[in-house]
Structure formats: C-alpha cells, structure tokens
C-alpha cells in the first residue's frame, strides 16, 4: 500500500507543481485526446518525449515513478494479453488455436494499447503527485462554474468536496485507532477467507460510521454558528490566478498537438 503512489501528492518545488491546477486538469484531458490520436511510431515517439520532459520538469525521479506504477502493471498486462489473444483477424496470422488468434494486427495493436495505458497512467500520476488534492478540488469547481447556467449546484458540490478532503486524514486516523482498539480485543483484520475478512470489517465500520455521523452533526452546527447559510452567497478567500507559465505550457501542448496531427497516419 505504501509504495502505491497513484493519487498521492509529493510536495516539491517545480514549475509543474506551480502550474495553475485548472491548466493542469485541462491539459490532462487534452493529453488523453492526444494519446488517442497518436497511431504510429513517430506520434508515439513525440508523446513519449513529451511525457518524459514533463516528468523531468516536475523534479520527480523517474525511478520513483516507475516503482510507483508497478502495482498497476498487472492491470495493463492483463488488458494487453486480452487484446493480443482476442483481437479480430487482420494481417499475418502467427498462431491459431480454437478461438484464439495471434495476428500481426493484434500484436501491433496491443503494443499501442500498452503504450497508451502507460502514458495515460504516467501523466495522471504526474497530475496527482504535483497537485494538492485541495487544489485539484478548487480547480475542478472553478472549471465546472459554467454548469451553474444549467442549475448544477457547483458551489455546494465544491464545498462538499473540500470538506470531504479535509476529513480524509481525520477519519483515517480514527480508523487506525479503532482497528488497534479492536485488535486489542482479539479481532483479526485481513485474515482468513473473503467472508471472514468482510466480517472482521464490521467492528471497524460500525464505530467509524457512528463517529462520522456525529462529526457531521457537530460540523453542521459549527458551520451555522459561523454564519454559513448556503454556498452560493459567499465570497472566496482562495482564488486561482492564471500565470504566464500556464499560457506557455498551453502553447507547448498546442505545438505537440499540431505535430501529432502532421505525423499521424490518416
């Protein structure tokens, strides 16, 4: 669990860390589009260079990255093998048995899928490693603002998201405390069959939920006492400011986009 870095934040001082979370979020989506547009060696080459450059700019070591991604490798390998064995006929057939076909088309395709997967995971890991959850939340709610026009309660959602993030460590601590307390009473966590393991979670989940509900009630009282009425009629202390580096990053991405358009197989 501890070397599982996907979704964690690594505080460093780099230009990638300092980018506006809105820019990073939008570029991450844009990047996925790019990954799906690439379809030959040159375009994938461009993307790999791109990704390595981004990781380099973040000052996070590549080794740390690869080690962290390792747990996800099984998922990738599984998908690639499926693709390899069951892809539709096309090109030269290398191997055929019952309904299993290994074809030239399948080999090339699964190679691409492998690279796609890897690239997308690398970039999204880079996003979370270089951006605080809170900033991701702020960025997301800022990007969702236009949805106000169709009466999506964006501000309330943002408030909920930020409070949820705020309470993650509190509840984690509490879960650890409860687990220790229950262990002292002889409960085994993570042992035995699936059913037994699930059952051993009950003495954890019940007190955890009770406490979470109590906290929620306390919190709502405290918020009301502090003048909270609704999320729409509030001013904002934390704001995001678009910097020159955000524009520059966008320009680099657009150049990459143009290159991929130029070199991809149409």
């Amino acid at each position: 669990m501890s070397n599982f870095i996907f979704g964690r934040y690594l505080p460093l001082n780099s230009v990638v860390h300092r980018l506006d979370p809105r820019a990073k979020l939008m570029l991450s989506f844009f990047y996925i589009v790019l990954v799906f547009m690439a379809n030959n060696l040159v375009t994938y080459g461009i993307l790999i260079v791109f990704t390595l450059a981004a990781i380099f700019a973040s000052k996070i070591s590549l080794g740390f990255f690869l080690k962290g991604i390792r747990p996800l490798l099984w998922l990738i390998v599984f998908t690639v093998v499926l693709q390899l064995l069951f892809s539709p006929a096309g090109g030269h057939v290398y191997f055929h048995w019952a309904f299993i076909n290994i074809t030239q088309y399948g080999v090339v395709n699964s190679g691409y899928i492998f690279i796609r997967f890897l690239l997308i995971i690398m970039m999204s890991t880079l996003l979370t490693l270089s951006t605080q959850p809170l900033d991701i939340a702020t960025g997301l709610s800022s990007l969702m603002k236009p949805l106000r026009w169709v009466h999506v309660p964006v501000d309330t959602l943002a408030m909920m998201l930020s409070i949820a993030l705020r309470f993650v460590p509190t509840l984690m601590d509490e879960a650890t405390k409860i687990m220790n307390a229950q262990r002292a009473r002889g409960v085994d966590f993570g042992e035995g069959g699936l059913f037994k393991q699930a059952k051993s979670l009950i003495p954890l989940m019940v007190p955890l939920f009770m406490s979470a509900f109590n906290r929620a009630e306390d919190l709502s009282t405290a918020m009301e006492a502090r003048g909270y009425q609704d999320s729409e009629h509030r001013s904002q202390y934390r704001i995001l400011t678009w910097q020159k580096r955000d524009t520059v990053t966008w320009i680099i991405f657009i150049i990459g986009f143009a290159a991929i358009l130029a070199f991809r197989r149409w």
Binding site: L134, S162, I163, L165, R166, T170, N214, R215, D218, L219, T221, A222, M223, R226, G227, Y228, Q229, H233, R234, S235, Q236, Y237, R238, I239
Partner: peptide, 29 residues
C-alpha cells in the same frame, strides 16, 4: 467554540478556516 477541535475546523488550511466566517459574510477578498 465547541468541544471537539476537529469537528469545527471547516477550512482546508489554517488560513482557509479563519476566512470561513468572513466568506459567509461575503467580505471582499
């Protein structure tokens, strides 16, 4: 101020929490 220090801390950081009451009152940034 209530009993449990955790259950009245709304903001993500100290600054944000102190600002919470001001935001509710729509004080300008």
């Amino acid at each position: 101020i209530f009993q449990n220090p955790d259950n009245q801390f709304v903001g993500a950081t100290v600054e944000d929490d102190v600002a919470f009451g001001l935001e509710n009152r729509q004080v300008t940034r």
